[in-house]
Structure formats: C-alpha cells, structure tokens
Nucleic acid binder design. Structure first.
Lengths: 167, 167
DNA sequence: CCAAGAATGTAGCAAAAGCTACATTGATTG
DNA sequence: CAATCAATGTAGCTTTTGCTACATTCTTGG
C-alpha cells in the first residue's frame, strides 16, 4: 500500500499497514497521524481575515487620531501603496466592514468598529503581556502585530490572568 | 493640503497643517504618525517564508516519524491537497531547501534541515511556554503553530527565561 | 479663477497558494 | 504477470495582495 525508498531501502509507514483486503472499501486509512495536527484552516480566508483586522484597526486608529482615515495615510500606516489600500478597502466594503465613496475618506460600519475594537483589545493585551515579560517595548509592539491574529481566546485569557496576578 | 469630510464638516489632520509655502519642496509631510508603526514587511515574501518554515518542519517531522516525506502525507499533515504540496515543494526546491525527484519522496537539504530545526525549536518553546501559562495543551499547540512565525528572538528569549525560572 | 500638485482611482502585470479534473506512474495483489 | 489503485504529476482556473504606470479629481495657493 505504501511505497517509497529511503537510500534505496524500502520502508513502510508508521507500522499501520492496514489490510485493504479485510475491508472492501478502502476505509479511512490509518496513516501516520502527523504530530502537529494542522487543524489550521490555512485557506485564503484566514489571511483575508487577518488583513481585514489589520485594516479596520488601522482605520480606527487614524480616525481616533485625526478624525478621518484617508487612503494615503492608511497606505503609509500599513506599509503598502495606496493602490493596494484602495483595492483592499473595496473588498472590506463588499464585506460590510467599511463604507467609502469616491474621493472621500473611509469609515467603519458598526461591524467594522466591532472587529476593530476586538482586534485592538487583543493587540493591547498581547503587547502588554510581552512587555511584562521583559521584551523591549518596540519589539513587543512589533511582535504583537504579528501574533495577535493567532492567539485563541484561551491564550488571551491566560495572558490577562498573568497580567492580573502581578506579571 | 488635506481634504476630507467628517459628517459633512471639513477637518484637518493632526493639527500639523504644514505650510507648503514656506518650503518650496513639499518636504516630508508631518502626517499623523500611525501609532502602530507598521515596520512590518508584510510583502509576499513574508508569507512565503512562513510557508517554507511550515513545510520544512512538516517534512522533518515526517522523516523523523516514518523515514520519508511523501507528498500525500505532507498534504494531509498540512491540510491542503497534494497538488498544492507539489507546487510549493517545487518552489522550495528552487530555493534550495528541499530536493525531490519525480515519483520520489522529499528530502531536506542542509539549509532546509537548518531552517526546520530553527522553526521546530521556536515552535517547541512557544508551545511549552503557553502550556506553562495554563493554556490547555491542544490549544497551546494550535496557537503555537500560528504564533511561531511572528516571535522575534528577543521574545523567544523572554519565553525561555520564563520557563527557566520556574514558569 | 486657475494652475499646480496632492490625493484618489484605473489598468494591467506578477507571484503565491488554494482548488478540481484529468493523466501518468509504479507498487501490490491476486 | 497483469490489473488495480494509490501516489504522483499536469493543466487550468480563482482569489488575494503586491507592484508600476498612468488618468482623473479635488483642494489650495497665488
């Protein structure tokens, strides 16, 4: 059932070696279950969701800071060109997270605001947590940007617990 | 210099309102510097690097577990189809991280092994750290998968420190 | 008011990573 | 040894997010 060579020698997988004979239908093969199970939905939607959070959070920050979010400032804030911003904002509008009109700045819808608030809260927690561990502030903030999208509620809760009990 | 409306009222940015007159050249505009500075090189290369690490780590795990890494098992381990695996493995081969031949399994080059080892070490550290914080093991492992690519050496060091001093 | 220039928008390209459907290869089994 | 079928590979599509180059719009300074 398995085939393959390792330096010329034939090998089999994980010792499973299920008998195809015993079950007419192939049946779910007992393949060596990978240790790091990769339940990860690493589809494009995952990245799209992260982008969406980055954008709404940046938009919220810009609005909080200067009253409006313009494509150019957003581009600067996110480190991409304004073209990319415009196209991504179009997608976000399609998804109901933001509203915008030609030559006008960008606003968050209620659900966009909600998402931004959640993302920001996670972001803050992660950053504070890393700082409390002794990571330099600049590094902590930079890492938090990358990490925030991948922490489950349970992990965020653990971070908060740690901070609360005098990290 | 700035334009835009907020609920019909005109607003300006951050109070900067630089005088274009005083300096003939526009000069670096004092745009409201975004708080979350986004030094992030969020280019495609970033994602490509993460994919590469995921792949070499999974390949290393498969080799460690069953002596070889085949496209199908890799696909299962990573949660994608074998087609995606084959194409990505082609890229990795182009980049000198793996070697493979038609209808043969996949091997790591020395640099691939190095990358896999680094990724695995980070992964382990992150997972152990999360567990030591009280995050359930399954969740910790899942989160570590996502987080490991975004932790700087400084943060990893902080995690190790924490673990060493009796987390 | 109008010209300059910033901001915004459009067109078109590339790369990466996902997919389905189909073709080919090769190891196992009867 | 030949047929079967898993494993591998190819073709071709899609979406997302980058980019450059160019076009359009709008604000503003003179």
């Amino acid at each position: 059932m398995k085939h393959g060579f390792v330096k010329g020698r034939r090998v089999w997988h994980g010792g499973a070696m299920v008998s195809r004979k015993s079950s007419p239908r192939p049946a779910p093969r007992a393949t060596a279950a990978p240790s790091s199970a990769a339940i990860q939905k690493r589809t494009r939607q995952q990245h799209a969701q992260e982008r969406a959070e980055d954008y709404v959070e940046a938009i919220a920050d810009l609005i909080a800071g200067s009253g409006e979010a313009r494509a150019t400032d957003l581009a600067k804030s996110l480190g991409v060109t304004h073209v990319t911003v415009i196209r991504t904002v179009q997608r976000l509008q399609r998804e109901g997270l933001v509203t915008t009109q030609p030559y006008r700045s960008i606003f968050l819808t209620p659900s966009g605001r909600k998402l931004a608030a959640e993302a920001k809260a996670r972001h803050e927690t992660v950053a504070e947590f890393l700082e409390s561990l002794g990571v330099p502030q600049a590094t902590a903030r930079a890492d938090a940007e990358g990490i925030e999208h991948h922490v489950s509620p349970a992990t965020i809760a653990a971070f908060r617990r740690f901070l609360a009990t005098g990290g």
